[in-house]
Each structure stands twice: as structure tokens, then as C-alpha cells.
């Protein structure tokens, strides 16, 4: 795809220029039974940058996030229409196995949810599951590398055999990030990863997100506009199941184009 064509595309949907879109969503509709949660979403996610999704509760930002690794599949009555491409492959209609998709698109959840197993086993589970390591040494190496990247290694290296659930909330969330990056995904989805954490743990996670951006494409749902401003390069504002406005984070927060965006970021609703 040439950059001229890209520009054209983005102009149609009022999206600022994204030179290397990793994920392209076009005309995505999501229904929970009879009620429509997402209405004709068009959104591009740039590679190796942080895109934050903001918006009031129930606006569909988490739903959109969960479309990106087909986590909505397990929800009954949930129907996804439209096209979502990951590196040019339609993740819904090309016969791609959702299990393989989720190995490429990792996810971190709102509440830290380490398995009730040892710290080591938490991180080693993914590589073992996908057979991406061939022996114990490689696995050890992978676990250490993932924990280092998640900035947790120094805190847990002496107690890898202790249960992951015994860590503090912030550490647990970083353990979950380490678990997600242990299988070398290309994209990491984060669903309000700091909402259950205190400000210090939040600051650590935000630092980590900035660090991870170099290797991974990150999409983060957040309720905190300050957080979106701090960590993301692009921001998409969702409202009532629609994308109201997408843009460079700086621009969106300083000079929003839409009244609804203006209203939300100045705190008039939401």
C-alpha cells in the first residue's frame, strides 16, 4: 500500500496519518443479542506506538479492544460484523485460528489475574503452551527476559517458586504483562490495566508501557485522561458505540474537533 493511498483512506475516515497501520478496523459492528454495542467503527492502530481508547463507561471501548484478539468469541450472543485486519490478514474471516491470533495479540486485564501458581509457572505457561522453547534452559532464559522487560525481575528473582498471587497488586499486574510478553506477541491489548492500582504502581506500569512501545504495538483502554495523555501517541474517543474523534494525543486533548470530545475531556459528562 502506498502512502498516498493510505492518506486517502484516512482522510475518508477523518483519521490522521498513520504511516504503518498494524491493525485496520473497517465498519465494525458488534451486537450483544439485540443491542448494538459498536456502530460502524473505523480505526487504525499504528505499529510500535501506543493508542489509547477513552470514553465514558459503556461506550464500547473495551468491546472494541476485545474484538482485536477475538476474546468476544467466548461471550454468548456476541456477534461481530465488519473487517479487522492484522498485518493484512482478516482475523475474523480468513480461517485464522483464534488461539494463534491470541498468541500474536496478547492481553492484560483490568484486574491483575495471575494464575494461582508460582511466579515462574505464570510466565512459563505461554511458551510451554505454544512450544516456542525447546528445553528448560531456553525456558529459564525466556522467563527471566520477560520478567526483566516487565521490570519485575529484581523484585522476584529470589522467589520465583512463590505463588504469583502473593505479590502486591502492582507487581501482579507487571507479572501479567510479563506473562503476556513471554510469548512474543506483536500487539498487547491493555484493558484499564491501572484501575486497580495505587498511583505509585500506576506510574511504574506507565513507565513500562513507554518502554514496551519500542517492541510492541500497544492498545490501552483507560478511564484516566491524564494517563492517556501521558502514555499514548494516538487517542480515540468513543461515545455511545461510535468513534467520535481520533487523533494525535496532544492535538485531541488541546484542540478537540468535536463538541462531545470537548465536553468529555473538560469533565462535563462521563
Amino acid at each position: 500500500m502506498s502512502s498516498a493511498m493510505d492518506m486517502q483512506n484516512f482522510n475518508i475516515i477523518n483519521d490522521p496519518i498513520t504511516s504503518e497501520p498494524k491493525i485496520i478496523a473497517r465498519d465494525v459492528n458488534v451486537f450483544y443479542g439485540a443491542s448494538q454495542a459498536l456502530k460502524s467503527i473505523n480505526l487504525d492502530i499504528g505499529a510500535n506506538e501506543v493508542t489509547s481508547l477513552i470514553g465514558p463507561s459503556g461506550c464500547g471501548k473495551s468491546t472494541f479492544l476485545r474484538c482485536l484478539n477475538r476474546m468476544n468469541d467466548v461471550i454468548e450472543n456476541c456477534m461481530v460484523e465488519g473487517r479487522i485486519n492484522l498485518d493484512g490478514i482478516d482475523i475474523y474471516n480468513s480461517g485464522l485460528d483464534p488461539v494463534l491470533l491470541r498468541a500474536r495479540v496478547g492481553m492484560v486485564f483490568q484486574k491483575p489475574n495471575p494464575f494461582p501458581k508460582s511466579i515462574y509457572d505464570n510466565v512459563a505457561y505461554g511458551p510451554k503452551l505454544h512450544g516456542t522453547v525447546s528445553n528448560k534452559d531456553e525456558l529459564d532464559e525466556r522467563v527471566e527476559k520477560s520478567l526483566r522487560r516487565a521490570g519485575l525481575w529484581d523484585e522476584v528473582k529470589d522467589r520465583l517458586d512463590k505463588p504469583g498471587t502473593g505479590l502486591s497488586g502492582g507487581q501482579q499486574q507487571r507479572l501479567c504483562i510479563a506473562r503476556a510478553i513471554a510469548i512474543n506477541p506483536e500487539v498487547i491489548l491493555m484493558d484499564e490495566p491501572c484501575s486497580a492500582l495505587d498511583p505509585i504502581a500506576t506510574a511504574k506500569i506507565e513507565e513500562l508501557i513507554d518502554e514496551l512501545r519500542k517492541r510492541f504495538t500497544i492498545v490501552i483502554v483507560t478511564h484516566s485522561m491524564q494517563q492517556a495523555a501521558r502514555v499514548s501517541q494516538k487517542t480515540a474517543f468513543f461515545h455511545m458505540g461510535e468513534v467520535v474523534e481520533v487523533g494525535e494525543t496532544d492535538k485531541l486533548f488541546t484542540s478537540p474537533q468535536d463538541d462531545r470530545t470537548q465536553g468529555y475531556i473538560t469533565g462535563r459528562f462521563g
Binding site: N69, V74, V99, R102, A103, G106, M107, K111, H130
Partner: peptide, 17 residues
């Protein structure tokens, strides 16, 4: 808790796994 299921699914485990 469903969060355990989500964690496993999110990492690419099949439903049976």
C-alpha cells in the same frame, strides 16, 4: 473466577486447555 479463564484464553490457550 472468570478472570482465570480470561487469563488463559488471552494467552492463547484453547478452551479445553
Amino acid at each position: 473466577p472468570p478472570s482465570i479463564r480470561e487469563a488463559a484464553l488471552g494467552i492463547g490457550a484453547s478452551r479445553m486447555q
